[in-house]
């Protein structure tokens, strides 16, 4: 029973992990808490659903969903992020929340506010290992998520583009001195984080076989929690945080009760913020120089 719940928790954690990585890219490099990401997560699930309802094959439906998320994210960059330079740090938060509300309501107008059943894509096949039942979809999404994160982390370490991104994350000034063209890098990062969020939304839809205009909120907020628990700006922190939050959620549902989820998950977040604000794998902020 416990082992089974741990497996389920890790599967849910994989989704949080992707969302947390999307958030961490935006925060770590751009210093932007991008609240449109939960909306893009939802776009991933709902647009796939909509296209498949029109009879498109799943791979095309997914491609359209990812494309839509990327384009919307570029719009977010234009209207919410680019304007924040020099202003109050809360402003982009407002505009990105505006995008979340806008996306939710546009989808709501199209598909209504109810939960919709997402078609089962994978054969309902279960592995049995020992006493554990593991769904095909679960294994696949965990594997794909981890592979994606591994690739991303390698990309940031080993390629020129990755090194440029990390320089910007360390210090904008250094990056400018080194002649890095930040204005070209920023939209690319927006697209990358949007793709991650939307992809997580698709995985969620495939796994849990349901979608709704508001599916992004709960997952999105827990993704933020996961990012912070792990340490903002750290990809492996986001992975660790995502898995921890997923575990905490599933274990508290089955052992304490469904209503206690928010207490455990957000209590954990609060505790970490007080005891170790930089998160499990993050670095503490240094004191400024006068």
């Amino acid at each position: 029973m416990l082992a089974q719940q741990i497996v389920n928790g890790l599967m849910l954690g994989a989704i949080y992990m992707l969302v947390a990585v999307a958030f961490t890219l935006a925060i770590g490099v751009l210093n932007f808490l991008n609240f449109s990401l939960p909306g893009l997560f939802m776009v991933g699930g709902m647009v796939s659903f909509g296209m498949m309802k029109l009879g498109w094959p799943w791979f095309l439906a997914f491609a359209v969903a990812l494309l839509a998320a990327a384009l919307i994210s570029l719009l977010v960059e234009r209207l919410a992020y680019r304007r924040m330079q020099g202003g109050d740090p809360e402003v982009p938060l407002v505009s990105s929340l505006g995008f979340l509300v806008l996306l939710e309501n546009l989808v709501l107008i199209q598909y209504g506010s109810d939960q919709q059943a997402f078609p089962a894509l994978l054969p309902d096949m279960n592995f049995r290992i020992g006493g554990l039942v593991i769904g095909m979809a679960q294994v696949l999404s965990l594997a794909v998520s981890l592979a994606l994160v591994f690739w991303l982390s390698r990309f940031l370490k080993a390629t020129n583009a990755g090194r440029r991104i990390r320089t910007v994350a360390e210090s904008r000034e250094t990056a400018l001195l080194m002649g890095i063209d930040i204005s070209r890098l920023v939209p690319q990062l927006f697209v990358a984080s949007a793709l991650l969020a939307a992809f997580a939304g698709i995985l969620f839809a495939v796994n849990y076989q349901q979608v709704s205009p508001f599916m992004g909120e709960g997952v999105g907020f827990k993704g933020v929690a996961a990012m912070i628990v792990g340490g903002m700006g750290s990809i492996w922190g986001a992975v660790l945080g995502g898995l921890l939050i997923g575990l905490a959620e599933v274990l508290s549902i089955s052992f304490i009760g469904a209503d206690m989820v928010n207490i455990t998950v957000y209590g954990l977040l609060l505790l970490i913020l007080i005891v170790r604000p930089q998160g499990l794998l993050g670095r503490p902020a240094s004191r400024e120089k006068l």
Partner: peptide
């Protein structure tokens, strides 16, 4: 007093978590 030891986005997230915990406590 403990929460305000954090700054910026950390503080925003701490208060966010706090709000969630409080309303979840009342729910139970």
């Amino acid at each position: 007093i403990p929460v305000l030891r954090t700054h910026g986005i950390y503080l925003a997230m701490a208060t966010f978590a706090l709000g969630q915990v409080i309303s979840a406590v009342f729910l139970n």
